[in-house]
Design a protein around this nucleic acid. Structure first.
Length: 210
DNA sequence: CGGTTTTGACCGGCGC
DNA sequence: GCGCCGGTCAAAACCG
């Protein structure tokens, strides 16, 4: 199980190249902030409820600390069933390698208790000047909403494939509008609809992905 | 003309 | 119970 289940062909539209992702690596905040607008950097944040994701994003930035896939136990539950997560906490659920910042245990418990059983989901942030990253699937926008305390609207997309209920949300980070937060929910029961052949240009992003 | 986007309305969960 | 808020629906507009 890996990132491909959600975005097997994450493409960087601004560069027109295609990057096969195996994992996200940690990038220094200084590097991220110095990167040109056409550069896309990705960081897995977590897989969680909406509320938790927001908490993660916020605390992540406040702490000037980027979370990496390979060192975070959240990865395990990112791919797992949320229902499992509700019963087996230590392994994941917002714990983020024991470095979960800013969210009290009590609060987390409350969030967990409230959460309905959902499709597995995760979110990651990218430094990009385009909102919608081409991940190889076809998406149809079904809503847009201005969420509180943010100046940028959140967009809601659904996979256009029949019988595929995967959704994704796209929003810009309030603290840094250059950063795009993409949240995937559910798992594709089909392969990407894009013909990716034309976008097999060598990656220019080895600094960020491996 | 068919698929996609836009956008206001609606609904359900949650806090007070 | 009420109001707030996030998520979804669906009709109209838009576009290739």
């Amino acid at each position: 199980m890996d990132f491909f289940s959600f975005a097997p062909n994450l493409t960087l539209p601004t560069l027109g190249c295609h990057q096969s992702l195996k994992a996200f690596s940690t990038i220094p905040p200084s590097l991220a902030s110095d990167a040109p607008s056409s550069t896309l950097s990705g960081t897995l944040i977590s897989s969680a409820s909406t509320k938790q994701i927001r908490d993660d994003i916020t605390s992540d930035f406040i702490g000037s600390q980027l979370l990496s896939l390979h060192r975070s136990s959240a990865n395990l539950w990112a791919w797992g069933d949320v229902g499992d997560c509700l019963t087996s906490k230590r392994d994941g659920c917002g714990d983020l390698d024991g470095h979960h910042i800013g969210v009290s245990t009590l609060k987390m418990k409350k969030i967990k208790a409230r959460r309905k059983v959902r499709e597995p989901r995760f979110c990651f942030k990218t430094l990009s000047d385009v909102d919608v990253l081409d991940d190889g699937y076809k998406w149809r926008k079904y809503g847009q909403k201005v969420v509180k305390n943010t100046q940028h609207p959140r967009s809601y997309y659904r996979c256009t494939q029949d019988n595929c209920r995967v959704k994704k949300r796209v929003e810009r980070l309030a603290e840094d509008p250059r950063m795009v937060i993409t949240t995937y929910e559910g798992r594709h029961a089909h392969s990407p609809s894009h013909d990716m052949e034309e976008s097999q240009a060598p990656s220019q992003l080895n600094n960020f992905f491996w």
